[in-house]
Amino acid sequence: MSLIEIITVALTAMGVFFTLVSSIGLLRLKDIYTRGHAVGKAGTLGVIGILLGVAFTFGDVLTGLKLLALIAFFFLTAPVATHMLERAAFLDEVNPIAKTQPNDLEGRYDYETRRLG
């Protein structure tokens, strides 16, 4: 096992570990909002770990650059996707289990024009 292969395996293992954890989280966590965290982790740490790991095995620069661009893409879009889902869940009146803090958005979402306050 050459050095590059060891690095690849290590990083990929990290990525896979996080993806696995987030999948378990997605399954075990009680309500949708906490599950959002799990999805976010998979989106960022999990996939980026795998991509980084894989980047080293290909040797040529172009693929490396492509993978780096992909990683940047994920950094950008994964949180947005999760945010959108959470927003949709909240505005669709999916009630959280533990009503702990006051709801800051109370009455500020106008269903007419779908705008926030």
Binding site: F73, L76, T77, V80, H83, M84, R87, T113, R114, R115, L116
Partner: peptide, 18 residues
């Protein structure tokens, strides 16, 4: 008009790349 500032900004950025 459907507005989510976050989505819009990302979409505006993504258009040229895509």
């Amino acid at each position: 008009m459907y507005d989510s500032i976050i989505l819009r900004s990302v979409a505006r950025l993504m258009l040229p790349i895509l």
